[in-house]
Design a protein around this nucleic acid. Structure first.
Lengths: 335, 335
DNA sequence: TTGTAAGCGTTATCAA
DNA sequence: TTGATAACGCTTACAA
């Protein structure tokens, strides 16, 4: 039912080997021959069989993108960056999400990668997650986004620095009781949650401010979580005058909590976050913007390089992209 | 370097045919034999070669998801629903985005599907888009989300009804000058943009209200576009007292435009939209919520059925999912 | 520059 | 229930 390379070879009066070479643009093919083959292939509406090609060559021409979430802003934005690069390179993108808290149980990703893809692109899986290490142990070309692991190429922002910038902004405005809305109570090293807390505590220490445990709360990087976390902070005997939220989405929730308590963000309580979500502009939220699409694009390019250069991945670097503080109405000087 | 089915067969003392049958759970395999094969395969850490399997069987075990956007809320949310179903079924998900206005040129999706996937899942590509028809002409199992084409299974909401609900809500509140923020100036039939406009004009007609062209504006389903569209409406000599935006994101932009003009949504101008975006709750936006994840899930299930039943897709139906009006502070009775 | 032919690792048919 | 074996459609030495 399908046209095969043999049909093309026959119609063009050459061998299948020549068809293969001609169609793949390999050198050592006569120009005349090549164009004749191309013409015949087009006429017959020939499409190469990827399965056969993969089996024969050992390359799959596809990579897996492994992510904990698909629908969240950061992840879908990274994904769109990744996709644009892979599509231009003609590489198939296999999307796999790893089981998360709310998800049903699901096969771990590593076994699904073997023999199926040429490389993997991992988005923000915590550095101590066993699933991540199963993936890395496969030894295939890999590049990571939003986390770093020794010896594996990755693209991130400088989370400590971003968080320092955000926190310093509040300190500069005169705030001395500054709340923190983080992810989970304990974050593994080299994750955003860990580093952003580090930047926060460092700046506090440098400013001579105490670290008050009652001003630390956890929003699990969701809007609803951010709202609960802010409510916790507002229920403290002594409220903060400013809050640093580790993500815009948590800040959105926090701002709603403020309004529900009759407080106006930026006037009654200042709030700053990290992300640069489009909605942050709508809500007039001060934030440290990160180039999320670029994270995806650059990580994908790093992966393509590994794929082509067949080089050991340890040559590659950790790339850190710049962030930028965008001051809006949600932060103001302490009155 | 890789363990093959032959190694397993040898180690288990059976033929490759038996290994294949045993591992795939086919009937007519002795229980003892099957478990011995499974044990040996596990010990050898055997992983089947998908390429070989595909070549021999003719099935790829993967489907393509084709979408115009990845990072936008509706699309990423649909995608997450699709992914959850496909992953549970053990089907590989190939993500392809089609070139859009802003994107660079890119191969049309149809040629990339042939021989590569068993089916396609198309998200909200306009019914008159030639790329869509190239895909459909492939004749492979296909299911669509957010658009309908005669004879192709699809999952949508009733866009006319959703839009009627939204518009009627404004009419019921006493509004008589109602603005419309739509997508593009002209939308193909059977698309959300077309049907939502239809519901809007129908309700206006039923209410005996005139259709004022100066109250119709276009936001192209983006936040920024919605802002511009609202600004256009506000620059009209006679402003609307209420606005229906075809998507939450356009409404977000519209609300910002209102604020920039010193107007408060829900007090000075009412606004209602369609979607049920999480941020709509934050912004207190009245909206007709649609079950976006379910759209993806159900469409994926419909595709799986076609895949398994090898049935001609024309048996399948158009499935319409229910929507729900969620009244919030952005709409109020005309004073 | 081109052709020959041996794989690549499964599946599926047919016999046994 | 199991085994032999011929596909499946391409790639890639190796020869010519």
């Amino acid at each position: 039912m399908g046209i095969t390379i043999r049909d093309v070879a026959q119609a063009a009066g050459v061998s299948t080997a020549t068809v293969s070479r001609a169609l793949r643009g390999l050198p050592n093919v006569d120009d005349q021959t090549r164009s004749r083959v191309q013409k015949v292939a087009a006429e017959l509406d020939y499409v190469i069989s990827p399965s056969a090609s993969r089996l024969a060559s050992g390359r799959t021409g596809s990579v897996a993108v492994i992510t904990p979430y698909i629908a969240r802003w950061f992840f879908s934005t990274v994904l769109s960056g990744v996709e644009s690069v892979l599509a231009s390179a003609g590489i198939d993108l296999l999307l796999m999400s790893v089981s998360n808290a709310s998800g049903q149980l699901r096969l771990p990703p590593a076994p699904r990668l073997r023999r199926r893809v040429d490389g993997a692109l991992v988005i923000a899986i915590p550095a101590d997650d066993p699933q991540l290490h199963e993936i890395l142990e496969l030894g295939m070309p890999t590049s990571m986004i939003g986390v770093s692991v020794e010896g594996v190429p990755s693209v991130t922002i400088d989370d400590i620095q971003a968080s320092r910038t955000a926190t310093q902004h509040l300190v500069n405005l005169g705030h001395r009781r500054i709340g923190l809305i983080g992810g989970a109570p304990v974050s593994p090293p080299f994750t955003a949650g860990h580093d952003r807390r580090r930047g926060f505590t460092d700046v506090l220490a440098e400013a001579g401010l105490p670290l008050d445990p009652s001003l630390e709360s956890h929003g699990y990087f969701t809007i609803a979580g951010g709202e609960r976390a802010m409510t916790d902070l507002l229920n403290q005997p002594s409220r903060p005058t400013a809050v640093f939220a580790m993500s815009d989405e948590m800040a959105f929730g926090a701002m709603r909590s403020m309004r529900n308590h009759g407080l106006q963000p930026g006037r009654d309580i200042s709030i700053v976050a990290i992300d640069g979500h489009e909605v942050a502009e709508l809500l007039d939220l001060t934030t440290v913007a990160q180039p999320v699409q670029d994270l995806g694009r650059i990580a994908a390019e790093a992966l393509l390089q590994q794929l082509h250069s067949r080089s050991d991945r340890s040559h590659q670097l950790v790339q850190r992209l710049a962030t930028q503080l965008i001051v809006r109405g949600s932060t103001s000087a302490l009155r």
